[in-house]
Design a protein around this nucleic acid. Structure first.
Lengths: 338, 338
DNA sequence: GTGAAAGCGCTAACAG
DNA sequence: CTGTTAGCGCTTTCAC
């Protein structure tokens, strides 16, 4: 691999001048620059980012944090969408993405250590476990961070408008005539889950509806179809059956619908179900799923912007809210007047 | 950040000795090593991987290649699963994962350039576009590569047993009594799609079944639900309607079922549908989807092993086949004898 | 067992 | 405008 020394030798300039040519320094003649750049191209020169990072203390790398528990993170369509948006925006700004783990071949022992060893410029926490001490350590550290769906004050924060989304869902169900509304919650320890539950409770109480404890069941925190299925089974054991269910995620809603059908109920005739996310499949289910759409790619892109801004300009630890949108399809209808 | 010089100063040893202590050199006394390691820990020392990579020419980084077209790669549950398995295995072996793009802030112009600039030790091609010249350039380059679902001879290759999977699907349908079997293919330019189509054709002809051209429709290469929907619409316009459809992906199958239902058909009573992948949702659909299961996490893990082996031992460009498994659920039944 | 010295490829003052 | 020098943090001969 050619180095700037090779180019220097070939062009007759010094390595320093060659370096300047690549870094768009102004104090270099246009002619010299072109000459250098051209021969660099001829020689197939590629800058060595490691060497550059060593002196500049800037790696142009962003660390990515996902929950490491199996089946939770990358497998979920929501995070796939977010990651895609994030990656796109980061790449355009010149940043590469590197996954952070706490145990990388036994070398690093925490996310923070891993990030520092690798010299990442910042880290994006796309999914976290609030119970995880390593996550807290990371936020305490001095790396710029953006955290998705969190309310930490230790970092820039980006959340989808969980409260408003839940409210819209409840308002919609209420508008259809539902008075017995249940909730499949996203699991404690999940910021989004908590916010959506709060939104649910608030909506229900503002409409003066009854809020039965047995109408709120907590799914496992993985937002999986299976968790939704189980939660719905539990819901259906309630003394009085709700006429509508607001699930804190589309996967949960899918499981819920499945469980309802397995119990001999028809959705939406016997029970309405509304989800949250708007995953690709939502529109193709039977019945197609009414849900609160999160702009996944947009969230990812915004997260990347926020992090990059924090990296490049420092700046405050703001908390940004990203809007959501109710998507009406066919899994809800007016309740049975039976 | 503490460096080995700081540790050297503090312990009284030289930087060279400190370095040796970390790298498990044998010519260093146990006592010295422990002393160095302990004070390193006290000082919160973390090795700088960039500096190390600069001298060793080894970054312990693997480049990851996904199709960059929106909505195709990361969003697909199959790749989420594969990536998860890959990540896990790579991390255990001490490798970090970095996404490769062809245009990183206008600096690199191809995957190969990007990988070389970053000094990755190898690259995993998890999804590719055979038409993409940059992909070909990458394989021609001197970086160790593993390619998923490909038959290139320029790299280690790992494919799920597409032929056998398709055969199992066809055999199963035949066994149920189907004689008019259609195929929604995964799109030209996709190795897996091609193999599955071949498996289909072979199975059909070996059973002596009619192979009508209008019973094979090519979906868009993105394996999306929408593509499946469109393909099924086309299939249903055929002069004679098939009694069963083998779709080259679960997403395609979901779309196909949806389209069938929209056309007033009942699955599986009027038409059977079988998929390929076994995504999480498959079991929760109505009807639950009979499909050919790919071991996503296993594929990812195996891909990582193969690549790491190639990196560390060089070795031949073998082609590995990963087994699949038919999962019978409720989207297929014996054809209507009407 | 240990250390001195050189070098990986690049950038950042500072001179000229 | 261009070049000299020093150094980023680490590893690697090769002496001792």
């Amino acid at each position: 691999m050619a180095t700037i020394y090779d180019i220097a030798k070939r062009t007759g300039y010094s390595p320093a001048t060659v370096s300047k040519a690549f870094n768009h320094y102004s104090d270099i003649s246009r002619k010299t620059r072109d000459h250098i750049l051209n021969t660099a191209r001829e020689m197939g020169y590629l800058p060595n980012t490691q060497a550059r990072a060593l002196t500049t203390k800037r790696s142009w790398t962003i660390g990515l944090l996902f929950l490491e528990k199996t089946g939770v993170g990358l497998r979920h369509p929501f995070f796939g969408g977010v990651l895609e948006g994030f990656k796109q925006t980061a790449a355009t700004a010149g940043y590469d993405l590197l996954f952070l783990s706490k145990d990388i071949g036994g070398k690093a022992n925490s996310y923070l250590e891993h990030g520092k060893m690798r010299g990442v410029d910042g880290v994006a926490v796309l999914m976290y476990d609030a119970m995880d001490a390593d996550y807290a350590e990371l936020l305490r550290g001095d790396l710029p961070c953006v955290v998705l769906d969190s309310d930490t004050e230790a970092a820039v924060t980006l959340a989808s408008d969980n409260a408003a989304g839940s409210r819209q869902a409840i308002d919609y169900l209420y508008g259809l005539g539902h008075r017995k509304i249940a909730h499949i919650a996203g699991g404690r320890g999940t910021f989004a889950g908590t916010k959506r539950r709060e939104g649910f409770e608030q909506g229900v109480s503002e409409h003066g509806l009854e809020l039965r404890p047995e109408w709120v069941v907590e799914a496992h925190f993985d937002y999986s179809v299976e968790s939704g299925y189980r939660a719905m089974e539990e819901l259906l054991r309630a003394e009085e059956r709700p006429t509508a269910v607001f699930a804190a995620g589309d996967n949960l809603a899918v499981g819920a619908i499945q469980a309802a059908q397995a119990a001999g109920l028809h959705v939406p005739d016997d029970i309405s179900v509304i989800g949250y996310d708007d995953i690709e499949l939502a529109r193709y289910l039977t019945p197609s799923l009414t849900t609160v759409r999160q702009d996944m790619a947009g969230l990812g892109a915004r997260a990347a912007q926020l992090l990059i801004h924090a990296i490049e300009n420092g700046g405050s630890k703001e908390a940004v809210i990203h809007p959501v949108e109710l998507v009406v399809r066919q899994s809800c209808r007016e309740p049975n007047r039976g």
